[in-house]
Amino acid sequence: MSFDFGYIIDTLPLLLTGLKMTLFISVFSILFSLIIGMGGAVIRTLKIPVLSQLVVVYVDLIRNTPLLVHVFFLYFGLPAFGIKLSAVAVGIIALSLWGGAFAAENFRGGTDAVPHALIESGQSLGLSTWQIVSHVIIPLGFRISFPAFSNTAVSVIKNSAYMTSIGVAELTFMAVDRMAYDFKTYEMLLTIAVIYLILIWGTSYLFGRIERKLDFNNKTKKGSGLNGSVIKKFGLSSRRTD
């Protein structure tokens, strides 16, 4: 058992195309989970009848069943209904639905924490419900719950490796595929492990930087942003998450 560095260098371009696919799936899934999560959180905070119950059912269903089974269901189960999706599409849909359910919980911590007085003052200023949502609830709720959401986003990147199971040509799949030909298990697995660690730790670091920028109670940046003083007045903690 010797470590073949030359082999790693030779296969690196191949692995990088896999990494590109991983990034492609992750970025779109994170984006969609952000939208789904924010929508779900606003619906639950405003307690819209029927819709908010549906969101609860959706969140509970997704959070309590394995992502791998969602993937298999979408890929192998849906064709019976005449819906045939490509593996990449299944990957993005499954990850978005999964991330969206977790993000909805994350964001609800934030949207629920928006002080009611702010919503009422919006109403008394004559803002429509939609204006209150888009100008008060979403911006404030997002900042408060960003730390929780960033965890979900990182998990989405990690879980993109699940798509190996349906043959999406992402990073893990590329490596496992090479292993079947050249039997360089040792080299391949350690290389992708390192790539994943750089990717995950790098993203976490980046999100951490954004978190500090968005943090209302940041000591180093007094009264950060326009709303800093308002939030402080209402005794809001930025760390209130589910």
Binding site: K158, A161, Y162, Y186, L189, Y196, I200
Partner: peptide, 15 residues
């Protein structure tokens, strides 16, 4: 915590 579970699984199983 940083490694995807799939990778940890493969590392253990193959290495």
């Amino acid at each position: 915590r940083g490694l995807p579970i799939v990778i940890t699984l493969f590392l253990v199983f193959f290495l």
